[in-house]
Amino acid sequence: MFKQNKNIFTGLFMAVCSVLFTYPSMAGNDGFVFGPRGLGTGQSGLLHTDIWANHNNIGALGWLKKSGAGVSFDNRYNLKSFNQIALTGALVSKKYGVVGIGVSRFGSELFSQSKASLGWAKSFGIASIGLQGQWYQVAADEFPSRHYLILNFGGLAKLTSKVHFAASIQNLNQAKASDFQSDKIPTIVRAGLSFLPNNKVKLISEIQKDLDKKSIFKIGIEYEVLRKVWARTGFSSQIQQVSGGVGFEWNQFQFDYAIANHPQLGWTNSIGINFIFGKSQSDQKEPSKGENDKENK
């Protein structure tokens, strides 16, 4: 009975994967953004200077002002096998920069990807850079699991107070997945610009390129509707995934939720909680009430 169920699951999994493979950069788990904030802004996490930068762009972590830790849970396309849990933590030192650790696991007992990373980032003047080492394990049912070491690099420059630029390279060392057809772990390069016309609004554009696949263009917007309440929405072209989300801050806690829709695969949900040591987390999430009033009245 169990065996039969397993076969059904395997079949289902293969079916979904075959759909996924036809959409650029959605195969496996490598192109995805981590955390509901990034998912809400059109799957774009490159330019968010929050603790989830550990998973999205190690360079952006350099701008973090308060230490913190968070957890998020994703379910993709309402499939059991497409769950992901991720943890993130960052320790800020004014002198030595930011040290971040991240752990995640995607999949089920049939197929899973586990990652653990340790990184360091620091801002110098207008720019920050970060470097990360990641242990990456892929396990498939009835096959021996494999693990790799991956290097990630990223940076975020605040060109002006309103325009930020960021870029990251995932799998700098181009780790090989197997010798068979020189299969490689995807190397993904991202670059993006964000524009902050006022203290309440953040517009994000990002381009993501997996060396072997078509590029994806992402647009996102985050708007502080009320004090410490954010609404987010965005989309990614090519894969035509649309998303939206909300977040709010209560004392030292931040709660975020995001939902996304793919025209064929359906719905993705993501929920997360962050705890911040100290009152506010980063520059972006620091509303200065006075200036807002000037702008909007």
């Binding site: 006022n198 609004v201 708007y223 909007n296």
Partner: peptide
């Protein structure tokens, strides 16, 4: 309108 001169729609 979410800012000076900045308008959005959905």
């Amino acid at each position: 309108s979410i800012g000076k001169g900045l308008d959005i729609s959905m």
